[in-house]
Design a protein around this nucleic acid. Structure first.
Lengths: 224, 224
DNA sequence: ACCCCGTGTCGCAGCTCTGTCGCAACGACC
DNA sequence: GGTCGTTGCGACAGAGCTGCGACACGGGGT
């Protein structure tokens, strides 16, 4: 359950987002002013802050800066359309991303996931893709409910790949992230590890469902 | 696959950014001097330029101005801490944003995304032209929703062309960027690759909608 | 001390891709 | 309208890439 704190003065927007976010599975709490928002932060830390730029009491930038002073909670700015200066200022103040109002829930959801992935590695330690479940805190993997035992290297490889679903990772990148040594020459090491991983999590390694080969570039995790 | 050109004279900073950026999925190329940077730009057009203000040969502002004269590639300035004058000057010279050194990779990543979003209008690595969608991180292409499978060379070619819609790219430039070896003599290699690409993404290769021939000069992407 | 598991390396096989060539078609310029 | 340079297009063979099995080494547990 991902907890999000929304700081927004317009009651209409609050209601709308409350509905949309809870439907997407988020735990949304709201504050109507900057002061109230900061106070809420002092108590229970959310996973992310959605921050409206225009607030009645404090400047959005100021709130953002104070949030960042005390915590490392990521912040997404909500700005009015087409205000480029605000974007620069917001990012300067430490915001991780910005979204233009009014935003479609799907867009907001995607941005939230992206920011959470970047900052913490994953939203809640549990990644589910089709019938594959990866628990990134317990370091366990199960397929169709059946537990799958992975070796350390296989686990690190799967974690790295699944951290960026849909994204192509080059062998170079994988070598850096999984093995942590920076080869320059090419190496069949990655290919081999992928093959071993596939043998354990794929039903048919010849037609991989999760770890896909992108010829000439690298590997990509996840069904498109 | 977002291509970035870093112009920075300090080898230490270069190495650091190279590592961090490649881990974030960027394709980073570097030049040590302003001259070298401009030369690299002549053949090899990146999505974005990261430009150090202090260079041994040319002034950062001057480089920025020249980049802007010839291309529409966005520029992010790297400046030393707390130099306000530089910021103003940089933005005046045509820089799209500035970042204070040393910058945390996450911050730099956020700025890059913001600038790219502003310049292309599209969210994270997604280029849309008519009914052609190019996902530059997943390295997938779809036409009217139907996925199109491209070979590595075709993909690199399409990425390079679509990086600068409306701009004519010479065969020489394409050879450098897509094939990375610098032929001097002319070669039918590019023609052939273009033809193969057209066969996959165009409805009627004889009247190409996306990759157009500019006789005597090269090829241009996109409906003007 | 032995055994077993994990991991890195090697080599082979199959397949796709890609560079080259030759000819046809087209357009520009005289 | 003719000629020449440029581009489109099909065919082909070699090169490059990836999958996959085999093997050896090393470390930890029994």
């Amino acid at each position: 359950m991902v907890a999000i704190l929304l700081i927004e003065d317009d009651p209409l927007v609050r209601r709308g987002l409350e509905l949309a976010m809870s439907r997407l599975g988020y735990d949304l709490r709201t504050s109507g002013t900057g002061q109230a928002g900061l106070a809420a932060l002092a108590g229970d830390l959310p996973d992310l802050v959605l921050l409206d730029l225009m607030l009645p009491d404090l400047d959005g930038f100021e709130v953002c800066r104070r949030v960042r002073d005390r915590t490392d909670v990521p912040v997404i700015m909500l700005t009015a359309r087409g205000d480029d200066v605000d974007v620069v200022g917001g990012l300067e103040a430490g915001a991780d991303d910005y979204v233009i109002k009014p935003a479609r829930p799907a867009v907001l959801d995607a941005r939230i996931r992206a920011v959470l992935r970047r900052s913490t590695g994953d939203p809640d330690g549990l990644r589910t893709h089709r019938d594959l479940r990866i628990d990134t805190t317990a370091l366990t993997v199960s397929r169709r409910g059946e537990p799958v035992t992975l070796t350390p290297t296989e686990m690190r490889l799967l974690l790295t790949l699944s951290r960026h679903p849909g994204r192509v990772l080059s062998r170079q990148q994988l070598l850096q992230d999984v093995w942590e040594h920076d080869y320059l020459g090419d190496s069949r090491l990655v290919d081999n590890a992928v093959q071993r991983l596939r043998a354990k999590i794929e039903t048919d390694p010849a037609a991989p469902e999760f770890v896909q080969t992108v010829r000439g570039f690298g590997y990509r995790f996840g069904p498109v």
